[in-house]
Simulated scan of single mutants.
Amino acid sequence: MTVHTAQTAGAERAGAPDGLPRIEDAGQIAPRDARNLSRLFFDRLQLLEEGTPEHQYARNTLIEMNLSLVRFAAGRFRNRGNGDMEDIVQVGTIGLIKAIDRFDLAREVEFTSFAVPYIVGEIKRFFRDTTWSVHVPRRLQELRVDLAKAKERLAADLDRDPTVRELAEDLGLEEAEVTEGIVAANGYTAGSLDMPADASEPVGRASGARTYADVLGEPDAAMEAVENLHALAPLLGGLDARERRIIDMRFGQELTQAQIGEELGISQMHVSRLLSRILGTLRSGMLAQD
């Protein structure tokens, strides 16, 4: 592993902040070294201004150093039979980035323990969104592919869609098996909510037809927000004046932690710890009301 202090090599790699090692290839760092270096980078990251080259350097290096966590988690899904491994790793990396952005050293937990659930969660969501809508036996999943090929081949020969009997004869199957396969194939994807509620209507919203989406109810996000605000109001009232001011500056005025620190005359790390404690108090209060 080749590292140099940023003070002596800042000109060679712009954006490396003072006090952090400059790493030539963060992706090649051994997992044990990555764990030790990650604490150093997280500690420095909390002091850096968001959006600056120094902050970007520290964040990107953390991502590269911890990609081994993504590869480890992705390996658990290698035999799922769906999705290319490269896609799985890319999706897992999204989870890693979320974990890095949300990790706080004040939690006093190892980053690996914090990050793996985020990574696995993103991968599971990927499989949930890209695989069969309902559970279908493997033999019927394979039959779906054979049926699709047979339909395409026979339609070209017959100049029309083949019947169940013709498909059965072509594939050397019983008609009941073909029917079962056709029904099971409907589980591969869910029907579109833009389909007409009346099958006799033309397809598409442009036609003016009433779709399934038009007749389905949906949660009112505004009502949920009102309920949350009502539940949060007494909890905010229980905070002291400085805590309410910090919440207002962070989420009302959308100031960065560094800007809040300047306003209050304290360090960005102190602001981070105060926010973590305040939000923890509010979160516990909200959960207690459920």
Rank of each mutant, 00 (worst) to 15 (best):
G252Q: 05
E180A: 13
S284H: 08
D18T: 13
D159L: 11
A34F: 05
A185C: 07
T8C: 05
E254G: 09
A197E: 12
V89D: 04
L47H: 13
D198N: 07
R102G: 05
G27D: 09
E180D: 10
A115T: 02
S284M: 11
L171G: 01
T189M: 05
D290K: 05
R59Q: 03
V178M: 03
H135K: 15
A241T: 14
S267M: 12
H4L: 15
R245V: 08
D157M: 08
P31Q: 02
M286K: 04
K98A: 07
R153W: 08
I97Y: 10
G172E: 02
A233N: 09
P202S: 08
N79A: 14
G237W: 07
E177D: 07
R244C: 04
D87G: 10
Q253E: 12
A222R: 14
S38H: 00
P21Q: 12
S200W: 13
A30I: 02
R35V: 13
L287T: 05
E254P: 03
D129Q: 11
E175C: 03
R35I: 12
G252A: 01
G95V: 07
L232K: 08
G95M: 01
F127V: 10
T131N: 15
A213W: 01
F72T: 11
I182C: 05
G238N: 14
M269P: 08
A106D: 11
A58Y: 08
A34D: 00
R205I: 04
H135M: 15
G237K: 04
L282S: 06
E110L: 13
R138F: 12
T112E: 08
A233Q: 11
F126R: 09
A30E: 08
V116F: 07
T256E: 01
L279R: 09
L236K: 02
L147Y: 00
R39S: 05
R76Q: 02
H55Q: 01
Q90L: 14
Y188G: 12
A199W: 09
F127Y: 15
L282T: 11
R153G: 05
E180Q: 12
V116Y: 02
R22Y: 13
R22T: 13
L45C: 08
L279P: 02
T163G: 09
A184Q: 07
I29R: 06
L255G: 07
V116P: 03
G92C: 00
D220F: 12
L20G: 07
A168E: 00
L158V: 01
L45H: 04
K124M: 08
S192H: 06
G19E: 03
T5W: 15
Q141G: 06
T61V: 09
R138L: 15
N60T: 06
M65W: 01
Y212H: 09
R244Y: 01
V120F: 04
R273E: 10
M249D: 05
E142N: 12
A197C: 09
L47Q: 15
M65K: 04
